[in-house]
Every structure is written in structure tokens, then in C-alpha cells.
Design a protein around this nucleic acid. Structure first.
Lengths: 238, 238
DNA sequence: GCCCTTCTGTAACAAAAGCTACGGAAGGCC
DNA sequence: GGCCTTCCGTAGCTTTTGTTACAGAAGGGC
């Protein structure tokens, strides 16, 4: 089981590919002329198909990663193989995740995979450090991105302590539902996000169906009562 | 109960006081002449007696905080009043905690109190931002500090998911024991650190005593077998 | 000593979450 | 259709954690 996991988690390195322009990210549009030249000379592009590995725990970080399109998922993997998402990295929103490793010369402390097809710009470490020194825009972005991450992590940690699984589930459903109130995730995925297991999620969903908060037709989850779900969140956990 | 909590959590604002020199922190020693002048003109000193409130959740952040001596504890407080430590800020190690709020113009997302008598240097927001622009040393410190924090939080979040309470307790005991193997914390404090309750901690400690991993004489915890405790950590959680 | 507060010890019970073990539905592929 | 894979539904049991409710030990202040 463990071995299988590792097998598909170490795919051959992905190949470069042409795709969205660097200038689609605001950070890069703010660069000075020389900075932009440096960037274009040194940047690499990567394309990761859905569900492939971007980083593994302990990997040395070779540069700063910017998500141009798609979505990355950062998660932890316990010794027994159970996962829990730590946070996500969306496209419009910048990179950040390997930055800390980059500045501290530490290895990366979690796993990262592409949740959907994802295009990355990889700015090699030395180049990034140089840009950081010269370009106020990069400084600003870096600090802002790290700050945001700190916020998310603090928030998540708080939630784990303060809320029960059912509440965290309700929260996730509310966050991930589209405008029609549908959620496009398997129970397994949900379980991984919350650091739990499929059966437990199924049980909780059943309870919510019984309470007329949602429907599950043919495995698709369909919210019925967003207010009801929100109410779950506010209640004291006892 | 909730009301009482709030009462002692909002003490009158602490008073300025003379204490350790700013130059005891390496960041400040690296400042340029003008930068140092700016700093001295704008910095404030605060002294927090043990167990007083430094920041409350939602507070607007007025500046960057540097711990000169003592120790701060950052924790979350659930609606029902249960606590869980998020991380600590030690003296030699720089400030950081309000930095994210400072750069993002967000309010602070947790509570902070002095774990022991603590001296702080408060650099007002505008001054800090200015120093950040001018001084490479400050830039460096800022990114490094934020990175470190991100690491700690990721680590903690991972631990919460991957390890049982007993393992996290063993870990905490190993970390906080002095060279004689004694731990100077009450069961209540331990429970708060781990986001649990006193009774549960007592039960787990009892188990460890039975397993000859430690002694509890007159309430003092005394490690007997560090290896045994470490072994607890490595074991699969099942 | 006596009172008060803080901390610890313990037991019995309750709730939450996880694990095991099925069976069954849906869809892709041959 | 038949086969295979992936996902969902459900039940029952176990483990872990939390809660309630007391009682007792230690120390400080008077």
C-alpha cells in the first residue's frame, strides 16, 4: 500500500511547454526593464497534468514557483499514508509555497500535487533572490504572499481545534459549492481535505441529508439550505 | 465563565519601561546609520508582566513587535473558551507575529499573551514599512521570520492530523523537559498547549507512568525514559 | 492551625471519529 | 452483454477523546 503510493507519487520530471504569458501575473508586469530581462532569461516553464506530483516532502527547492493556470494542492502525508490538505495555490493568486524553503535553505515540508492541469513558472533560486533585492514589486509580493499563507495556516489550525468534523465539512461544502449549489468532489477527496476517511464523511453527509440541508442524487452533492449549513458553523461545538 | 475570561483578558495597557537594548537583536545591529536613527526616534518599549495580554483577536495592528526578553504565546480561543497554542515567540528569535497583519492591513487573527515577563520593542507600522524599503537587513529578517513561521505552522498542522494526543504529548514533554528531565508545567497548561483538557492529560500521563516512561512526584513530572517516549512518536498511529 | 486557592487523581459515562466489511450503482471498455 | 474500476451506502464495532463529578494534596496567608 505504502509502496504503491510512492510509485505513483514519483513520476518522471514534467516537460517544459508553451502556455500563458508571464505577464498575466501582476507581479511581473511591475518589473523594471532590467528586471524583466533577467526574468525572461532565467525563467522556466513547467506543465503538470492533473494529479501529478510537483514537490515531495524533503525535496530541495530549486526556485520560486508561480502558478500561471490550474491549481496546486499542498498536503501532508502521515507515516501511515493518510493525507490532509494544508492549503491550495490558485492561479491568479501567486506562487509562494516554496519561497520559505528558498530563503531559509530548508527542504520543503510537505507534498504538492496538481489538482487540475497546471502551468508553472519556475524562477531559479539565485535569480529570485536577485530580483528580490532589486525589485520593490517582488519584495512586496513576497511578503504579502507569505503573510497570506500565515493567515491561512493559522486559520486552519484554529479550525481544527475549535470545530468538529461536521462543522468543518459544512464549511468546506459552502466554500466549494458552485452557484447552483453543487459540489464536484468525491467523498474520498473531501475526506482527504479534512484529514478524515470516506466512511466518516458519508455518515456525516447522511446526517445532513436527513436534516434537509442537502441532497445526494447519484453521488452528486447538491446543497439545499445554505443558511442551515451556516448555522451549523456558528453553534458552540458542544 | 465567558465574561470572567474576558475580564482578565483585557488588562489596562502596559507601561513603557527601560530594559534590554535594541542592539541586542542582530537585525538592528545591521542597520545603516540613518536607519538606526529613524529606529531610535520611533521605537517604543513595552513591558508585559507574566500572563498579561499582548494582543487580542481582531485587534488592529499598530506596528511590528520585537521580543527583547521573555516569551510570548500565540493561541486561539474557541467560542466556548477552549484554548490551543499556535506557536511561541522567543527572545533571541525575532518578532514576526504581527508582521502579516502589518503588511496586509488585516486585524490580528489570534490572541497573544506573555508567558513570562516580557519586554517588547514596538516599531510603529509606517516606520517599519519605511525601514523595510530602505534596509536590506530588515527585508531579509522579515522574509526569514515569516518563512520560519510558515514552517512551524505547517509542522503543527501536520502533527495535529497525523498524531494522536498521546504522541503529541510525548513530543511536548521531550521538547520542554530541562536537562534533568523535569517539566515545569501544570497539567492545565499542557492541556491548553495541545488543545485538550486537564483530565485527558492526567489520564495519558497515568498511562505513561504505568509504562515507566516517567514519574509524577508531587505533581512534578520527571522523565525516566526519553527513548521510550521517542519510540512512541515513531510508531504508526494505529 | 484554618481557610482558601491551585493543582492533581480517578472513575464512570458520553460523544466523536475511525476501522472493517460488506453490497450495490454507474460507467468505461472489450 | 460481461468485466472491471471507481465511487457510494450502510451497519456494527473499537478506539480515542471529551465531560462530569468528586475527593484529596500542597502551599500561602492570616
Amino acid at each position: 500500500m505504502r509502496a504503491e503510493l510512492l510509485d505513483w507519487r514519483f513520476p518522471p520530471p514534467p516537460k517544459p511547454m508553451e502556455s500563458p504569458a508571464l505577464e498575466s501575473l501582476e507581479v511581473f508586469r511591475r518589473l523594471s526593464g532590467p528586471g524583466l530581462q533577467l526574468l525572461h532569461a532565467g525563467v522556466q516553464r513547467l506543465h503538470l497534468p492533473r494529479h501529478t506530483q510537483a514537490l515531495y516532502k524533503g525535496q530541495a527547492i530549486s526556485g520560486a514557483y508561480f502558478v500561471l493556470s490550474g491549481r496546486l494542492r499542498v498536503f501532508s502525508l502521515s507515516p501511515e499514508g493518510s493525507e490532509a490538505s494544508l492549503y491550495f495555490i490558485d492561479p491568479g493568486e501567486t506562487c509562494i509555497f516554496a519561497l520559505n524553503s528558498l530563503f531559509n535553505d530548508l527542504s520543503y515540508p510537505a507534498w504538492v500535487e496538481a489538482e487540475s492541469d497546471t502551468t508553472l513558472a519556475l524562477v531559479p533560486g539565485p535569480l529570485f533572490r536577485r530580483l528580490f533585492q532589486q525589485e520593490p514589486g517582488i519584495q512586496d509580493m513576497t511578503v504579502r504572499a507569505l503573510s497570506t499563507l500565515v493567515f491561512r495556516l493559522m486559520r486552519e489550525l484554529e479550525d481544527v481545534h475549535a470545530y468538529k468534523l461536521e462543522q468543518r465539512l459544512a464549511n468546506l461544502l459552502l466554500l466549494r459549492a458552485n452557484t447552483q449549489g453543487e459540489i464536484a468532489m468525491t467523498q474520498e477527496q473531501i475526506a482527504h481535505h479534512l484529514g478524515s476517511t470516506r466512511e466518516v464523511i458519508a455518515r456525516l453527509l447522511r446526517g445532513m441529508v436527513a436534516a434537509r440541508l442537502l441532497q445526494t442524487r447519484r453521488g452528486r452533492i447538491q446543497l439545499l439550505d445554505r443558511n442551515g449549513l451556516s448555522r451549523l458553523l456558528g453553534q458552540p461545538a458542544g
